[in-house]
Design a protein around this nucleic acid. Sequence first.
DNA 1: CTGCGCGGGGTAAACGTTTACATCCTGCCG
DNA 2: CGGCAGGATGTAAACGTTTACCCCGCGCAG
Lengths: 371, 371
Amino acid sequence: MKHPASRRPTVSIRTVAEAAGVSTATVSRVLSQADHPVSDSTRERVLEAAASLKFRPSHVARSLVTSRTRTIGAIVHDVADPYFGEILRGLEDTFHAGGYQLVACSSDRDPVRELGYVEHLLAQRVDGIVFVGGGIEDEAYGHKLESLLDEYRDGGGVVVLLAPNAYDAPAVVSNNEMGSVSMTEYLIGLGHRRIGFVGGPSTVRTSAVRQSGYQSAMQRAGLFDPILMESGEFTMEGGAQAAATLLARDSEMSAIFAMNDIMALGALKHLAGVGVNVPDQISVAGFDDIQIAEFVRPGLSTVSVGTFGLGEAGARLAMRLLTGRSGSTTVLPVELVIRGSTAPPPGGLDRRRAMRPGAKDLGQGNEEERS
Amino acid sequence: MKHPASRRPTVSIRTVAEAAGVSTATVSRVLSQADHPVSDSTRERVLEAAASLKFRPSHVARSLVTSRTRTIGAIVHDVADPYFGEILRGLEDTFHAGGYQLVACSSDRDPVRELGYVEHLLAQRVDGIVFVGGGIEDEAYGHKLESLLDEYRDGGGVVVLLAPNAYDAPAVVSNNEMGSVSMTEYLIGLGHRRIGFVGGPSTVRTSAVRQSGYQSAMQRAGLFDPILMESGEFTMEGGAQAAATLLARDSEMSAIFAMNDIMALGALKHLAGVGVNVPDQISVAGFDDIQIAEFVRPGLSTVSVGTFGLGEAGARLAMRLLTGRSGSTTVLPVELVIRGSTAPPPGGLDRRRAMRPGAKDLGQGNEEERS
DNA sequence: CTGCGCGGGGTAAACGTTTACATCCTGCCG
DNA sequence: CGGCAGGATGTAAACGTTTACCCCGCGCAG
């Protein structure tokens, strides 16, 4: 069945045209459903010929002449990180429904690698680029990226941001600041005074924004102490280490707020490992509400950003831009999701700040209408 | 800075040629580092012109003439599932290093959707397709896929499988059968008699293979009882539901073996929810060893397949095939990873079948040498 | 009867590369 | 000194589409 050496001659639009006894123009008109009129009988013959020859129009040839590839590049930090995986899924589904292909690139938060991917995407002539992960703070990198992206958009490319970034472009972001403030205030309301913060690498903008939310809430309550902040890699290991450091540093700490769920999960593991009970002895909270957050024990209290929805909204924005319509930056509301990992501090005065467990919507930022 | 309407004329190889005072052929030779000789002075001038014009060679034009896109399609069940995310990362890194781009497609285990993606990838003229998820059993679908793929390979396309599939192509698979048998035997060795099995949809081949491993091990031990098998969606919810069903169905069940970690996590959640202690009352085991497995409490005992490594090996195989070298099916060894979620049954006679916790390598299947 | 609009179809020029082939030198071997 | 092997460069034909233009014939309004 398999003839390794018999790479049969590719069947092109010309082959079909000959078989159907028409010109290539007609074939193209039938197959690309252009609005040019074609008689039913001709259409029929063309369709038949195409089918029997198993003709498969070449997207690359088509792209060359139309200068649109119907492909979108998505730059994430790491596809293996569930946060990005979920957003990617939202992007993919929406783009796919709109006839676009998605190519995912893991930058690993490395400026060089990210730049390399961007250049590659430009060379591929993707119609748009979605930056899913937060921007990376790096002088040289920032300049280069900016010039690259400006050039790209000048040429008709579309750029969409899904997280805080130094570069200015249409974006869909969740309300990081508010989410962070709310969670911090919630913990304070439970009676916690010494609340640790586990951040990510300071070069990632999202991390900085969330940290600033925590910081301002703590300051307003007169509880801020820089000693309570520690950062690590954006991984479970990173979260575990940061938690360990914090724990060793301040024996009165009764809560840990991690800037994302992955790190919070790491903290959870570390605490269990050293025999600290969560939430009886120490409360733990995360950010993002990735799927797994609901399934660990105790359930992780977190700030839900609606990962899938974020991806969908991002794709919709990009497609709106691609079709020439305008679309501007939107901030998506976040939602506090309280599960079992948070509770009043041990023996702490539970002030019962009427905050019912469950979901509290933190509106602000208007979700745009469906298109 | 941004002139919305001034889409400056694209700079092509011709523009560069004129600027450098040479022919397009020369420019091409310099920029695509062909082996054709070019004098240093000319090369210099071309490079300079290209840089100052910000010339960016079009991959699509290049692809049209070379009929190679340096793009690979990966078909997974769901990018938001950590198992696939991790494999994708392995694929991506390796392909990227080899100069290939990866486009990921989530089939959602829907034959129609998967077929649609495959056709799209063919139209895109990707150089290869990697099927990451297990094949879907569906008569009509199977035929269509087979003819599509045969046609594709006839035309020079490369197909690689990363899981059991009805379609025959070079593959890298982990030893599912053996992993399943080993875990089952391990549980039996701990003293469990009533061991439940949580499978995925029966249309997915991987699930069937793992189930058969469980089944044969149980039969050999004279413990098999079809009532102990239940299946559900490949999600945490699916695992939770299946666990619930099993629990209600057999009150003597002391262990649950889920066909993948995601479902095991769901089972874990359900058990905790209904107040069943793991592993004191019921042991739980999974399959895959996704990253999170180590970070839940109790740590999940599972069969490690080395997700990243699987992706890497798959990409290496594909690239070997792409460069004309041959490569054949490899089966990767799996490894039993025992964590806290498994223990002897309550009050059960712990036969102390000398099985030390930790990692036990289940060799067989020779990992190929690095290329 | 003339002319115009339009349905239906063809011709050929792009699109931006790569590459087979031809051309022209220059130097070296016999 | 003739010829020949390369080195260096150019010419132009692909690659597989789309699409701007052109052409023909027919029906119908004026």
